[in-house]
């Protein structure tokens, strides 16, 4: 079954989720993308933003004001639903389980961060295989680069914000330097591309 899937050309993949990572300058980029996704955009979006450990849900509340979908900080074991945006809470890693639920964890920091983008992306690669789109945005960190490689190796689609358009280019550039990034786009283009990719699901009706 897996084998057969892997042989299909990528354009026939219908995606199950979008995972995104951002750090410094990330809010603006998220805002541009999430405000462009219409309410009939179905794919769940999982977001890791590097937060101050004391952040009390304020990042998620800010995103909720600009996004058209409901934005929540999930609890542990919450089921991932369509048309929802999930933001990792401060101080917890957010992972995806193979059974389609969210797992929060207090494991040690990764790249000096908890939540860590690598942690989310690596678990998403295992849980979704090729059926996931990973997006890496502005940041002054190298978090996410290892995760992008894992997504790519599992057959998923990887997108980086064009470093020249990012407030902090280090993070998307680090991901691009791994050679694992499929597409390098501005945030406006990322929004449009996600809509296009998300629509595949309904076309094929898988």
């Amino acid at each position: 079954m897996r084998q057969k899937e892997a042989q299909q050309p990528a354009c026939h993949v219908s995606y199950e989720a979008v995972v995104m990572g951002g750090s410094a300058g990330g809010f603006k980029a998220y805002a541009a993308i999430l405000s462009a996704l219409p309410t009939d955009f179905e794919l769940p979006v999982l977001v890791v933003q590097h937060l101050h450990p004391g952040d009390d849900g304020s990042f998620a509340r800010h995103l909720a004001r600009v996004a058209l979908h409901p934005v929540i900080e999930p609890c542990d074991k919450e089921r991932i639903e369509r048309r929802q945006v999930y933001v990792a809470p401060a101080n917890y890693h957010m992972l995806v389980e193979r059974n389609g639920t969210i797992a929060l964890s207090l494991e040690g920091k990764v790249n000096w961060s908890r939540p860590s983008i690598d942690a989310l992306f690596e678990s998403a690669a295992l849980a979704f295989g090729q059926r996931v789109i990973a997006v890496i945005l502005s940041g002054a960190s190298i978090d996410g680069a290892v995760g992008m490689r894992a997504i790519k190796a599992a057959g998923g689609l990887t997108i980086a914000q064009e470093p020249a358009t990012a407030e902090y280019p280090v993070m998307p550039q680090a991901a691009i330097d791994t050679g694992a990034v499929d597409e390098v786009l501005s945030v406006e283009e990322i929004g449009r591309r996600l809509i296009e990719l998300g629509a595949r699901k309904s076309q094929i009706g898988v």
Partner: peptide
């Protein structure tokens, strides 16, 4: 144990 985290470790 929660699988994703145990696998990571």
């Amino acid at each position: 144990y929660a699988r994703a985290s145990i696998e990571r470790r």
